[in-house]
Design a protein around this nucleic acid. Structure first.
Lengths: 153, 153
DNA sequence: ATCAACATGTAGCCTATGTTACATTTCAAA
DNA sequence: TTTGAAATGTAACATAGGCTACATGTTGAT
């Protein structure tokens, strides 16, 4: 009843390599994306806080992101290595040009996704909630489609 | 120029507790969701492989998910603890009732999202790619909206 | 000018998810 | 029936992202 562990020499399945490989690639990308999601959430939060409070501090970021200041600290170290932020001990956090650019892209994408969902009839709260997760997985093509549909009507 | 580290006693910002707290909660949820994303990807893959090959084996899963068999192995251990799969050493992997139910939900959600994107005019390939990442972040309300719009027209 | 309270930093621990390298088991074929 | 290649399992390591507990720095108020 159970299939053998080894596939028979010549028999085997047809070369179903493509679909599986394609899916694997999709999932791999999906995972790889996760690595940058954090960076995006951080730079976006830093940009917002800088705009509303004049500067971004560790505690504010922690509150905003829903984590402890320790997590914020460690992540900031990596973001600095990645060239997105400038930090000095006990000082406020500033975005680099690269960080600011990323933040702008993220904000725009987030707003587009949220606006699109609202336009579809999704409630304000849910749209915001879902956009938070979805925004990181929307390709340029899909984003463009959203924008086009938002412009119409 | 730099704002003080401590906020002035009474002055401070207005109780901007809500927006920030809400955002933090959204992000927290977004993160929490990640924990189950893996389970969903796995049970979905197992269901598909079982359907197409008669059973799901570790190598097939690894190929399909784009990871090594080691990662698959460890994850399966946790999925078994979570009650989604049944495994025995050197044997094929089987979904429990609970696992099958989860897989069905995921598949349905994935197909809905992909179909919705295609209907918007997104290309086949991109729709599939984006759906892979988006599906895990679509709330029941948004999914229902997608389905409603798919039914129309 | 002092100092207590708050912000920030550090040490150490945990889980999830990846990896490579190597050991063990299975089974189709010689 | 033997056997070797493929499948599976295990050991040991790395990174990302959480946490608590504790140490250190800063500064508004006294």
């Amino acid at each position: 009843m159970a299939r053998s562990l080894r596939k028979p020499k010549a028999a085997g399945r047809p070369p179903e390599v493509r679909p599986s490989a394609q899916q694997a690639e999709n999932l791999r990308r999906s995972r790889r994306d996760r690595a940058v999601e954090t960076a995006q959430d951080y730079v976006e939060a830093i940009a917002d806080l800088s705009a509303s409070l004049g500067e971004a501090r560790v505690v504010d970021l922690a509150r905003r992101l829903g984590v402890t200041h320790v997590t914020v600290n460690r992540t900031l170290t990596r973001l600095q290595q990645a060239g997105y932020v400038n930090t000095q001990p006990y000082r406020a956090i500033f975005l680099t040009d690269s960080g600011r650019k990323l933040a702008d892209e993220c904000k725009r994408r987030h707003q587009t996704v949220a606006a699109f969902l609202r336009k579809l009839g999704v409630s304000e709260k849910t749209a915001e909630l879902d956009a938070e997760g979805i925004e990181h997985h929307v390709s340029p093509e899909t984003l463009a489609t959203f924008e086009k549909l938002l412009a119409r009507r």
